[in-house]
Computed example of a mutant assay.
Amino acid sequence: MLLNMIFAVLIGGLVGVAGHLSKEGKLVMPRKTKKFIYLGFWEEVILGALGAVFLVVYTDPDSTLKVILLSIIAGFGGEALLKGLELLKIRQKDNR
């Protein structure tokens, strides 16, 4: 089970980086502003890895191929979560 979790973290993180690159076109480095710390590409790496680990632990796959496929799917799910959060931020700005 630990090996499956390690694979999930690595693959989910890589899918997060790939999603970040496809969205931004480059790696955006972390930066600190006056009010906020922006994690850059690390934000998508963390969300992709966490999503992959949660999905792999929840489904308990019995083969390495299933772990890889589930990790890829969960990595894209982390990207979708970020897009949803961006939409919420835009709506909050428009309502002000």
Rank of each mutant, 00 (worst) to 15 (best):
N4P: 03
N4H: 15
N4C: 04
M5K: 05
M5R: 08
I6F: 06
F7W: 06
A8C: 02
L10I: 10
L10Q: 06
L10F: 13
I11Y: 01
I11T: 02
I11G: 00
G12N: 04
G12H: 02
G12W: 02
G13L: 03
G13S: 06
L14N: 10
G16V: 00
V17P: 04
V17I: 12
A18P: 09
A18E: 12
H20M: 06
S22T: 10
K23A: 11
K23I: 15
E24R: 07
E24H: 14
G25E: 06
G25Q: 01
K26R: 12
K26N: 10
L27N: 05
L27F: 13
L27Q: 08
V28N: 11
M29D: 14
M29G: 07
M29Q: 11
P30H: 04
P30V: 06
R31Q: 12
K32C: 13
T33N: 10
K35Y: 15
K35V: 13
Y38P: 09
Y38C: 14
L39N: 12
G40L: 03
G40Q: 00
G40C: 01
F41N: 03
F41E: 04
W42V: 12
E43N: 09
E44S: 11
E44H: 14
E44M: 11
I46A: 06
I46R: 01
L47T: 03
L47P: 00
L47K: 06
G48H: 03
A49R: 00
A49N: 01
A49G: 03
